[in-house]
Amino acid sequence: MERPLKGSAPNADDEQLLRGRVYGRDHDDPDPGPLPHQTYAALVGGPLDGLLLDITGWRTEEVDDGVALITELGRWPGGRALYDPRSGEPRTPGPGVSCRFYYSGDTP
């Protein structure tokens, strides 16, 4: 598969590969989707748009801090894409998608 050029957005093939998949699971996994007993944050925007992040067992403070996720698809391949929750946005307790993390930039 063709990799995006440094600083470019993911191409359509990359975006399709990411949809409905859990961050950190291998794309070759026969079932890379969410598990019914886990809790997830939906990643919105940026290079990991459409992925779910497993936040099962995270404390409220950890969710509030957001995340820096390693990706080859960001501005710096092998760098991190930054995602944060929006203040005041509701969260649903329990399994399933409980919140959203929004893209806020990249870091090497």
Rank of each mutant, 00 (worst) to 15 (best):
W76Q: 12
P10E: 15
S98H: 04
E89V: 02
D31G: 10
D54M: 01
A42F: 08
D106I: 13
G45T: 06
D84K: 06
S98G: 13
K6P: 08
F101W: 14
D49S: 06
T56W: 00
G57N: 05
A41H: 06
Y23L: 03
S98P: 01
A81L: 10
L73I: 09
T107V: 14
E62S: 14
V22I: 01
C99H: 10
K6S: 13
T60E: 09
S87P: 10
W58D: 05
R3V: 08
T71C: 12
H37D: 02
V44A: 01
T39A: 03
V22T: 03
P90L: 07
P30R: 12
D106L: 15
P32T: 03
F101N: 11
P77F: 12
D65E: 11
Y40A: 00
P108D: 07
L73R: 05
L17M: 06
Y23G: 00
N11S: 07
N11T: 04
A42I: 10
D13V: 07
P77H: 12
T107L: 10
D49Y: 01
G74R: 13
R19A: 04
G57H: 11
G94S: 07
R91D: 14
Y103M: 15
R80Y: 07
L52G: 00
H27V: 14
R91T: 09
G78D: 09
E15D: 05
G78R: 12
L69F: 02
F101H: 15
G7S: 10
A42D: 08
Y103E: 15
D49E: 05
Y83I: 14
L17D: 04
D29T: 08
D31N: 10
S104M: 13
Y40F: 04
Y83C: 11
G96A: 06
R100N: 15
P85S: 07
Q16A: 13
P85C: 08
L5E: 13
G79C: 11
L48A: 02
E15M: 06
A12N: 10
G50C: 01
G20V: 00
D31F: 08
P34E: 04
N11L: 10
V67T: 06
L51H: 03
L17I: 09
T39G: 00
Y83H: 14
D26E: 15
L43C: 09
G46H: 08
P30C: 15
R59F: 12
D64R: 03
G33T: 04
E72V: 15
G7D: 10
H37P: 00
D54T: 00
D65K: 02
P108Y: 05
L18R: 06
D84F: 06
D14L: 03
D106P: 10
H37A: 03
G50D: 07
T71N: 05
E2I: 07
R59I: 14
D29M: 09
P95C: 02
L17F: 01
E61A: 14
P90N: 05
V22L: 02
H27F: 15
R19Y: 01
G46M: 11
I70W: 01
G50Q: 08
G105S: 14
Y103I: 13
D26L: 09
